[in-house]
């Protein structure tokens, strides 16, 4: 599809409801200005966003899938880390 010489960018969008930017996908673009435009044209067609970040895909350091057991397995037995052992008063609302 796209020329492999055109760099890939990861796209993050902050929705209207605020909160943090979320990863929504990626676009090809020759430079950062075009990456922002492409992200706008591909990922905000239905009023999804109020802010866009684009990051060069090759700037992301990812965990190795082979390290899955070492990285994530140990937390499976630490149920006391979940905030489920006390009652949240109704007045607090959504946390």
């Amino acid at each position: 599809m796209a020329d492999p010489a055109i760099p890939l960018w990861e796209v993050f969008i902050r929705s209207r409801s605020g909160l943090a930017h979320r990863h929504v996908g990626s676009v090809h673009a020759a430079d950062v200005t075009m990456a922002l435009q492409n992200a706008r044209d591909v990922y905000t067609r239905r009023g999804e966003g109020l802010s866009i970040w684009v990051v060069p895909s090759n700037a992301i350091t990812a965990s190795d899938p082979a390290d899955k057991d070492m990285m994530f397995e140990p937390t499976g037995s630490k149920i006391y880390r979940h905030p489920t052992f006390y009652d949240v008063p109704d007045e607090v609302g959504h946390m």
């Binding site: 796209a2 090809h28 435009q37 044209d41 591909v42």
Partner: peptide, 11 residues
């Protein structure tokens, strides 16, 4: 020429 531009032109 590319998906991104296809959407931009259609938009």
């Amino acid at each position: 020429p590319m998906l991104e531009e296809e959407l931009a032109l259609a938009n």
